[in-house]
Design a binder for these strands. Structure first.
Lengths: 244, 244
DNA sequence: CTCCCAATAATGTCTATACATAATCGGAAG
DNA sequence: CTTCCGATTATGTATAGACATTATTGGGAG
């Protein structure tokens, strides 16, 4: 015998997802569900407020609850960590630091990060290699004001992304995905052809409002794509991953 | 005075996100939090179980709760609806159906959708245009077994995606994002140049296990990118959108 | 010393109740 | 007829207590 909470929730979700209750349809009041399932109000309240948080219904005092308009479609993309992915698939991962310097940011970078122009940042370029084939080129800016210990780090054992993830928690991230044509130098680095379509993932992260890092990762298009899954109820299908 | 639930939750989230409680750190027991905040167990229990659902902590009976390992990074991408985006920005949106036919699917499509080869599907090609500039080319397969009424639909008022979204609820979706070079015919349709990098978004949706539709949407790379935001706690930064 | 079982400690679910808050409805006063 | 105010209704938050479930701990039997 399943728990009552799950049974009520499954029933209502099924009604909504099957289309039997279309958007705008009134959901039974809490006291009606109490009567139907013979339970207390706290139990049905927890069901309904959870559904509201997850966006399946909207609730208004006195007016009751109605099935929500189908939200704009979302996809949850899980960004791959190369080392972990390599361990999972049994391929050999390594990386090479191509450059490393401390430079003041230009106007465009200042705009993107919200920092004053001229702020000094650690700039690191990394090539990610699996089974001797270059898989991605990463250009990263690290805010030395937020992560001063990066100044002395050589990134010998771990690439900058992995190193940072273990050291600095983050509270907000912004992602941009684009398609660009590889220029000559990028093509050479990634062992592909000039003009080849590449996927560019830009990620900026902040910790409690303070800028942490910006990464621009370029994947050769014929070798990579991003995969994501989504179910409206967040019940388990919400994972996805970047697949080489 | 904020509600107690929010205060407790904010306190704990702050501790975790600031790094003061690193991954693996033990979270106070429910009875400790009861004592600290002078409230009942139901209140702290709701806080902790919500944090657990959102992945910030993991809970085990008898052992207590600990701060979770930072999950692999995720981005929530919100896929744009052209008509809605046009209404928001004040541009003129229109679309053109370039082709429409009923065809048996080939082996590759059967593999992707999980349907038997030879199943008849409605195939529709649509060009999305904003301010007279082509913005995206959409190739869509619609499962007539799941959506029989699509057979008689001419897609005069709404493009197939919008029409479907209003008619057929979906429970699961799969997204793939890739970068490809435009071939000659694609370049002509999108008024760009042969070889130009394009973002390709493939989406397949199911309703309770039954395949509904597959859409492959090609965006010229220089005109489009996808933007997403993410905060670990899902407290509000979870939205994002595709931006022309 | 090892194995097993009972006590214990923590979370998971549920109840019955209470008061607060917001929106709506209906009637009374103007 | 309109305006305003109270009554009503549904949800929002919180409490104290109960029993269930699960994992660990520790002690006793072999």
């Amino acid at each position: 015998m399943k728990h009552l909470y799950q049974r009520i929730r499954d029933d209502i979700e099924a009604k909504i997802m099957s289309g039997e209750w279309p958007p705008g349809h009134r959901v039974p009041f809490e006291h009606e569900l109490m009567a139907k399932y013979g339970c207390s109000r706290m139990t049905v309240n927890k069901v309904l407020s959870t559904l509201a948080v997850n966006g399946l219904i909207t609730r208004r005092r006195r007016a009751g609850s109605v099935v929500a308009e189908p939200s704009t479609r979302q996809a949850v993309l899980e960004i791959q960590d190369f080392a972990r992915e390599a361990a999972r698939t049994g391929t050999v991962y390594r990386f090479r630091i191509l450059s490393r310097s401390i430079e003041p940011i230009d106007a465009a970078a200042a705009q993107r990060t919200g920092l004053p122009p001229g702020t000094e940042m650690l700039c690191v370029s990394t090539l990610h290699i699996m089974d001797d084939v270059p898989q991605a080129f990463e250009q990263r800016l690290i805010n030395l004001a937020t992560v001063p210990e990066a100044d002395k780090e050589a990134f010998r054992d771990d690439p900058p992304g992995t190193w940072l993830l273990r050291r600095v928690p983050w509270t907000d991230a912004e992602h941009i995905v684009r398609a660009v044509n590889a220029d000559a130098s990028m093509a050479k680095r990634l062992q592909t052809q000039t003009g080849a379509a590449c996927l560019v993932l830009e990620r900026r992260t902040w910790q409690a409002g303070a800028f942490v890092t910006e990464a621009r990762i370029t994947y050769p298009g014929e070798r990579h794509h991003l995969v994501g899954h989504f179910s409206p109820s967040f019940k388990g299908g919400t994972v996805g991953q970047a697949v080489p």
